[in-house]
Design a binder for these strands. Structure first.
Lengths: 243, 243
DNA sequence: AAGTGGTCTAGACCACCGG
DNA sequence: CGGTGGTCTAGACCACTTC
């Protein structure tokens, strides 16, 4: 690994290059979620840099929750266990405090030509298609939201042939297509319930709902999932911590 | 600075202790927002640790935006410029994209006995009092929200005697009372507009509003501001990025 | 040129985990 | 016990800013 490509222009730190090299291995599937990486010493030898440089790269990826480090055991590729999804990606909490991973009930799965909104969010080619998964979600027995997930057909091949869409879709993306979600961007609005909300959520027309539009990005920072959710927030809230 | 207080129990890394020492200097007012800290070498000498250890502490505080580092110039105590507030603490964006620091119009300032909600959020003593600041906020000429700020009288002495409450209150907290806001926790719900919303926002009764309940924390992680906002989100949205 | 933070190295030792 | 990550050190050199 070159220490310096050029002295002034386009200078990129070594640990960044190490980071990219590791990311390539992750994206190629050489290191699957749950597996242990080689030790710092070993990686340093392999890449021809010092252990401290490898450490800096690993620390950065740990901060972004792509890796998990456990003292005395090793460095692992992060998995999509329920608890991680719950704490990292799911921001809806019951007011009472106790948390559950919400259960899903799939209503419909089909492919279609994308709307303008979907095309823009997913940065799709003109003639690309999308899958649309429509589902309801429950917190225990209480219905809390309805949502529609949009996924590019090109990346999620044969999704329509699945017998069942599991509750934890990010684990599915990872296991079946090798797609790793690392970042999420959400936009929230308060909206009035319409006909469709009445039909699926059973709330009154005009009732206030929290609408969440989510775009999820993979390891290469490309958008791979677009999701529109409408939530009943009588006994739930969306938590956001800024620091 | 002791390298090791005890070998097994209550072990705390040196860089954590350095961090706490620096935080104490910030809280004491020795280093005001905007001032430059001593160089890494100098701090290392002062504290009797290596430069690398000081660096690790400074890096952590930079990640939390308490400090700002500028290569070739020095390390500075972060200030509350409009731009920082806008990007770090204010998550309401116009759908169109361009951003402005919202203008405020104060309606009322008075002290009162806290409600149960305020007492809990601010962790107040039984007989403590709070200031309540009621204001409207505009994005350009467009009214976007109404909010009530609650502040402990004990910490914000003589707030009632101010001639004017400025737009950027976090800078005021810092300059007048030496209170530094470092973290914010928000809870969001969709609610239906009531009588008060009709009167102040001019929206119809029952119209959907985004309600934000914010608690702001100081350097010592103590809650110092509680804020309830109700926002019109027809042409605005709340942005949340998770990674 | 002098001073700052940023990167990189090499090596020592500590805390933690598992067999 | 051996292996892993976590901390700490000392020193070299690079990049950026200011004078």
């Amino acid at each position: 690994m070159d220490a310096r490509a050029d002295s002034k222009l386009g200078f990129r730190p070594l640990y960044q290059q190490v980071r990219e090299e590791i990311t390539r291995h992750l994206a190629s599937g050489r290191w699957q979620p749950g597996t242990m990486l080689p030790s710092e010493q070993e990686l340093a030898r392999e890449l021809g840099v010092s252990q401290g440089t490898v450490r800096k790269a690993l620390d950065a990826m740990t901060a972004e929750r792509i890796l998990v480090r456990r003292q005395g055991r090793g460095t692992f590729v992060a998995e999509y266990e329920e608890s991680r999804i719950l704490f990292q990606f799911f921001r809806l909490y019951p007011d009472s405090g106790e948390r559950l991973f919400p259960v899903s009930k799939v209503l419909d799965v089909r492919s279609a030509a994308p709307s303008e909104e979907e095309r823009e969010a997913l940065e799709l080619e003109p003639k690309a298609e999308v899958w649309r998964i429509s589902r309801l979600r429950y917190h225990g027995s209480e219905l809390i939201m309805r949502e529609i997930l949009s996924l590019p057909v090109a990346q999620f091949v044969d999704l329509g042939e699945l017998e069942e869409i599991p509750n934890n879709v990010y684990r599915l993306y990872s296991q079946r297509w090798g797609i790793t979600i690392t970042r999420i961007s959400e936009k929230l609005k308060a909206v009035a319930a319409g006909e469709a909300d009445l039909a699926e959520l059973g709330c009154a027309i005009g009732a206030p709902l929290l609408e969440i539009r989510r775009v999820a990005f993979d390891l290469n920072k490309r958008p791979v999932e677009y999701r529109r959710s409408r939530c009943l927030t009588d006994s739930m809230h969306y938590a956001s911590d800024l620091s």
